[in-house]
Nucleic acid binder design. Structure first.
Lengths: 146, 146
DNA sequence: TATTGTTATACTCTATAACTATA
DNA sequence: TATAGTTATAGAGTATAACAATA
């Protein structure tokens, strides 16, 4: 049996990938139940506040041209509207409608809350886990996604 | 300011979602560089050993019929082959070719290894984190994904 | 009769390039 | 000249339903 110098890190990564998989299935399931394509659900989650098309495209990691069609379909369903910017008339801000906001809340109810497994940790353990993850992410400046 | 009874769990979930986002971007970037669609890259990662179509579909969370086309395209690129099962002639096992195995290794080099942030933890902290995650996932029987 | 994989269809996503209207 | 968003196009993903072969 070979000695695994890096065994804990490798197992941690495996455990995290399992968590990722659970989260992803939860996200896909929630989107499906709400009759949203994953990309549409991802866009809704990003729209905490109004965003220009190009900004939304950057957050979704795709080209501007993709966002045109995506927003078209959300707009047809009455979930978002395009608002011309006052400062720069080229820019259109995407704004959630009331219906869009309600749907976004439903999504958050399902994917924005902690995985059930966290409840198995006692209060002190949760604080330990929080501190360890903080340290892992210390330098990270990237925003949470999906 | 309202009292957050569940503050650590909520922050943990936020930190984990940040990690998910990093992992997802790394995954999408690696797939793109290797000229693979995300779904194709996900399939390759699942093919550690040969799998029947239906099993692959279940792991990818999509319908059998989708896997037909996906495997078609992987087969055209010489990354996988279909092997009829001996036990049940309805079943086709999807097997990586040598080229497929090499491409899968390249993928794993990029997404299968621990996030760099883990290196910020000392040995003892890694063991603590591992044990906490083990507990969180205690009952989970789901396999890791993508 | 039920299951495995395929085909057919329709809609969505995604990348690329060309276009417009602003700046 | 550069940028924000659109349009056009092509390839891929996805769900559904219908189908052939096998169990």
């Amino acid at each position: 049996m070979a000695i695994e110098l890096d065994a804990p890190a490798a197992e941690i990564w495996g455990l995290l990938r399992t968590l990722f998989g659970q989260h992803r299935r939860r996200f896909l399931g929630a989107a499906s139940e709400l009759d949203l394509h994953p990309a549409q659900a991802g866009a809704l989650l990003q729209l905490d506040s109004p965003l220009p098309m190009r900004h939304l495209a950057a957050l979704l990691g795709c080209d501007n041209s993709n966002v045109t069609g995506l927003v078209d379909r959300l707009e047809v369903r009455g979930l978002v509207t395009r608002q011309a910017s006052d400062e720069d008339r080229r820019v259109k801000n995407i704004v959630l409608t009331d219906a869009g906001r309600r749907l976004r809340e439903k999504l958050l109810d399902r994917v924005g809350r902690p995985a059930s497994g966290l409840a198995r940790l006692e209060a002190l353990e949760q604080i330990q886990l929080r501190d360890l993850l903080r340290k892992v992410l210390e330098e990270a400046s990237e925003p949470p996604a999906g």
